[in-house]
């Protein structure tokens, strides 16, 4: 990792697992300022369509960006772009897995740009978050 110029189409990114505990959700509420009771208050969340608390979608996205920052430490925060859809909620107690693969490398005015299919899967294999990211390689 880190030697971004030697990337190739088809390379997988180093995904990782993370248990999304309620403690992590609580900490994310403090970090983001998003104290929506659907994430924090079980009695309120029971009245919603989900029937229980759900993690912030941005928390799952944050895990994906952790993977990208680790894979592309020289460029992710200086030219990285991401576009995702939130497909399914993550419930506290679930372990999610981030994933990514380089799908193309293109020459542009800014140099080589890698496009990656990225996401975060729930325990049943469905995507909680999925989309693509582009990262400068030089």
């Amino acid at each position: 990792m880190g030697n971004t110029s030697q990337r190739a189409v088809g390379d997988s990114l180093a995904g990782f697992e993370r248990l999304i505990s309620q403690e992590r959700v609580d900490a994310y509420a403090e970090a983001s300022g998003d104290h929506n009771p659907i994430h924090l208050d079980e009695s309120y969340a029971a009245t919603t369509q989900f029937g229980t608390r759900i993690a912030h979608g941005m928390l799952s996205l944050a895990l994906v960006t952790e993977m990208l920052a680790k894979e592309f430490p020289d460029s992710w925060h200086s030219g990285g772009k991401i576009k995702v859809r939130f497909s399914a909620p993550v419930f506290p107690g679930e372990t999610v897995v981030t994933y990514g693969k380089i799908t193309s490398i293109d020459d542009s005015d800014e140099g080589l740009i890698a496009t990656c299919a990225i996401g975060c899967k729930k325990p049943d294999g469905t995507d909680a978050v999925a989309g693509r990211a582009t990262v400068p390689l030089q």
């Binding site: 990782f16 993370r18 983001s32 941005m58 960006t65």
Partner: peptide, 23 residues
Amino acid sequence: SAYAAAVGGDESPDYGDTLAPIL
């Protein structure tokens, strides 16, 4: 720090004195 507690793990990058922009 709260963000690191929420998101972080052994695989996390070292942000030093910078932030994850997604925060």
